[in-house]
């Protein structure tokens, strides 16, 4: 189920502005890869190129190659909609559908895939909510609005919604930045348990979080003021935080940045 991602020579643009420059990396299956770096250095933009969400912004485009195992996601006959069905995404702010119940939120993606049988849906809802560590809290109120949950619960609901379709990769864009420390911990535990099945990529501003949850860490930085963002290095998380290969990485993680 989990697949390897290989990115080579990737550039992303907003209109004429190049946001990220020449990024190449390999993301291993069944592992957590964290992206760290200062604001505006293109981490989120890069993450969104991995499931072709970058191009939904008017004027945005991508150059380069993203291989999911052997399939080039930017190949000429690849449908972005199909890409997004196998690469799930969790956003910075929890965004359950406000008009849907908890149950309907979880099955939203399944309905797109044409799953209609009630028994099967029920089963997947329970499995996904258990997988997102939310089942015990909501099992008695599945018909209640998803937007009525707390922020942390909403984010776990969004994770349940993303994993309900059993994606091959799960992208998380600062999933804890709007949450309190306890909810953050719950999500981090969840990430640790999900990595057995999924390839997980997480953008985070919190370096402790990157150190806690990830196996590999990539450090992003701007090439210079007004220049596009680039990847400085990627390595084992342990190595990045103890003995990084680049001076810039060390300056950033020790807080001597800028």
């Amino acid at each position: 189920m989990a697949k390897r991602i290989e990115v080579s020579g990737l550039n992303a643009y907003y209109g004429k502005t190049r946001a990220i420059e020449d990024i190449s990396m390999t993301i291993e299956p069944r592992s957590v890869t964290a992206f760290i770096g200062p604001s505006g250095c293109g981490k989120s933009t890069f993450l969104r190129t991995l499931n072709r969400m970058h191009e939904v912004i008017p004027g945005a485009r991508v150059e380069g190659k993203v291989l999911l195992d052997d399939l080039d996601l930017y190949g000429p006959d690849v449908d972005p909609v199909a890409v997004r069905r196998v690469i799930g995404m969790v956003f910075q702010r929890p965004n359950p559908f406000p008009t849907m119940s908890i149950y309907e939120n979880v099955v939203a993606g399944l309905k797109l895939n044409g799953v209609r049988r009630k028994a099967q849906l029920d089963e997947i809802v329970e499995k996904s909510l258990r997988g997102a560590n939310l089942w015990n809290e909501v099992k008695d109120r599945l018909g209640r609005p998803g937007a009525g949950l707390s922020g942390g619960q909403q984010q776990r609901l969004c994770i349940a919604r993303a994993i309900a379709v059993e994606p091959q990769v799960l992208l998380m864009d600062e999933p804890c930045s709007a949450l309190d420390p306890i909810s953050t911990l719950a999500i981090e535990d969840l990430i640790a348990s999900l990595k057995d099945q999924y390839t997980i990529v997480i953008v985070t501003h919190n370096m402790q979080q990157a150190a806690r949850v990830s196996d590999r860490t990539a450090f992003f930085n701007l090439a210079g003021p007004g220049k596009p963002g680039r990847m400085v290095e990627i390595d084992e998380t342990n190595k990045i935080f103890t003995n990084p290969g680049e001076k810039a990485t060390e300056d950033y993680i020790t807080g001597r940045f800028g």
Partner: peptide
């Protein structure tokens, strides 16, 4: 925008985005 992106990220087509996120809202 967050609701529209949520639907897009689940692999919804434009019409499905409208049905999932826009019309109910």
């Amino acid at each position: 925008r967050a609701n529209i992106e949520a639907a897009l990220a689940l692999g919804a087509t434009r019409w499905e985005v409208i049905r999932m996120a826009v019309l109910p809202f």
